[in-house]
């Protein structure tokens, strides 16, 4: 399971990376915004994308839309982990095809639950 973590704050990337390791996911790569993430996604066979929303350069929602428009990436599961908490934003992310939405600050349990739910749904379909 190859996971890309996209967040402009290195400490947040580190926290997510640690939580993922506790869940048994050790193959993680990091990027600090959508612009750097997109080429990384295109070049490597990633199984899962975790992204923040508010980032300089290219935001998480733009990244999500770009992923959904790319024929090679459009089925990639995407989990949004963000401080953005407006209802309209959550609706926009849902409409853009996000697979899960976690608001910061979050707990390890919530992150675990959402990741498991996404994989359950993928395996079930």
């Amino acid at each position: 399971m190859k996971i890309l973590i996209v967040d402009d704050f290195s400490t947040m990337r580190r926290i997510i990376k640690n939580l993922l390791r506790d869940l048994g996911f050790t193959n993680t790569t990091e990027a600090d915004d959508g612009q750097t993430a997109l080429p990384v996604l295109k070049s490597g066979s990633f199984d899962f994308l975790i992204t923040d929303w508010n980032m300089p350069g290219m935001t998480g929602i733009e990244l999500l839309k770009a992923v959904r428009e790319d024929p090679g990436l459009n089925s990639l599961p995407v989990l949004m982990v963000t401080a953005e908490a407006k209802k309209d934003q959550i609706i926009e992310a849902a409409q853009a095809g996000v697979n899960g939405y976690v608001v910061k600050p979050f707990t390890a349990t919530v992150l675990k639950e959402k990741i498991e739910k996404i994989f359950e749904r993928i395996e079930g379909s």
Binding site: N54, I61, A83, A85, K86, D88, I90, V103, F106, V110
Partner: peptide
């Protein structure tokens, strides 16, 4: 635009356009 990034919401209890936590999401 209603969906422009705003960062952490510091006055959740005073706003109706934001979720109050993960359960709301």
């Amino acid at each position: 635009p209603a969906t422009e990034a705003e960062g952490p919401i510091i006055n959740k209890e005073k706003r109706s356009d934001v979720v109050s936590g993960q359960d709301d999401v």
